[in-house]
């Protein structure tokens, strides 16, 4: 058997490894910049997005059909449950509309144009998901032309799903909240206690075994109970206040017994979503 690595090949291999690590490091470093990816890369990604949509069209229609059939089976049960909720919903809707009106007129009196709770929604469909296990990213079919900007939060169903990390002309990449990427931006959240007070913290990670988000850097965890609601606090970045994240499921000490971490069951189903909503905060960020 001839030698796989001759001296010349070994040198080429070493140079290639150095080039690979260098290129990855550069890519990671420039990723958060506002002007990346460059136009050429955007065009490539847009073309790949279009090709992916064409190939996935038959698979998607089959998938939608199957999901519709499964939903049909569950319809009766869902209907019974929804009927019960419907009675109370009308009243809540009415109160909500009245409060909104009142809120708007009060804001007008105070000459406030928009606050941290105001946002617009951009609906998008998921085109594809990164097969690379460590990335936890999906590609959605809305981009720069639809007003999507890097770092906007993304919701699925009733809860927070992730954040836009790259914007091309016609599609964007969304990093899911379940990412293990330590360099990613954390979401600032607040826990609403039963006594009406709020505690500020950040989403510091995702416990894959428990399928729960880990909240840390809370001032103290006194008074936090399972079932308390967790929402975004609107501090930092482009996230508005009041996006629902999930409900507290447990409070645990960290490995050294020094600080308490709050575990939150996310409201969004991180592994079952086809349509997402990109949130565009009315108040400008940094």
């Amino acid at each position: 058997m001839s030698k796989f690595f001759s001296n010349k090949k070994l040198i080429i291999l070493l140079i290639t490894i150095v080039a690979m690590i260098g290129l990855i490091a550069i890519s990671i470093n420039v990723k958060d910049r506002r002007d990346t990816p460059p136009l050429v890369q955007q065009i490539g990604n847009d073309a790949a997005g279009v090709a992916s949509s064409i190939i996935s069209a038959p698979i998607n229609s089959l998938h939608t059909g199957l999901t519709a059939m499964v939903n049909l089976v569950n319809t009766y049960q869902d209907n019974e449950q929804l009927k019960q909720q419907l009675d109370t919903l009308d009243q809540v809707k009415e109160t909500n509309a009245t409060l909104k009106r009142e809120n708007q007129s009060l804001k007008k009196q105070l000459h406030l144009n928009a606050t941290l709770t105001d946002y617009k929604q951009i609906d998008a469909a998921v085109i594809t998901r990164s097969p690379a296990t460590w990335q936890n990213q999906v590609v959605i079919n809305k981009g720069q032309v639809n007003g999507v900007v890097k770092n906007m939060p993304v919701m699925a169903g009733s809860g927070l799903l992730g954040r836009v990390v790259e914007v091309n002309k016609t599609n964007s990449k969304v990093e899911l909240i379940s990412t293990s990427n330590k360099a990613t931006n954390s979401f600032a959240i607040e826990v609403r206690l039963s006594n009406g007070k709020y505690l500020d913290g950040i989403v510091s990670g995702y416990d894959a075994n428990k399928k729960q988000l880990i909240i840390s850097q809370l001032d103290n965890t006194d008074g936090v109970k399972a079932g308390d609601e967790v929402t975004t606090s609107g501090l930092g970045g482009l996230t508005p206040r009041g996006l629902f994240v999930g409900k507290v499921s447990a409070i645990r000490k960290d490995d050294y017994g020094l600080t308490n971490s709050v575990y939150v069951k996310p409201a969004a189903d991180i592994n079952d979503f086809t349509v997402v909503t990109v949130i565009d905060r009315t108040v400008e960020g940094e």
Binding site: T16, A19, M20, I21, L23, I24, S27, I28, K31, P37, Q41, G44, N45, A48, G49, S52, T128, S130, P131, A132, Q135, Q137, V139, V165, E166, K173
Partner: peptide, 15 residues
């Protein structure tokens, strides 16, 4: 293309 489309970090599949 794979790196650019799926992760945005170029280098993994490229090499």
């Amino acid at each position: 293309f794979y790196d650019s489309f799926y992760s945005g970090i170029i280098g993994y599949y490229t090499f």
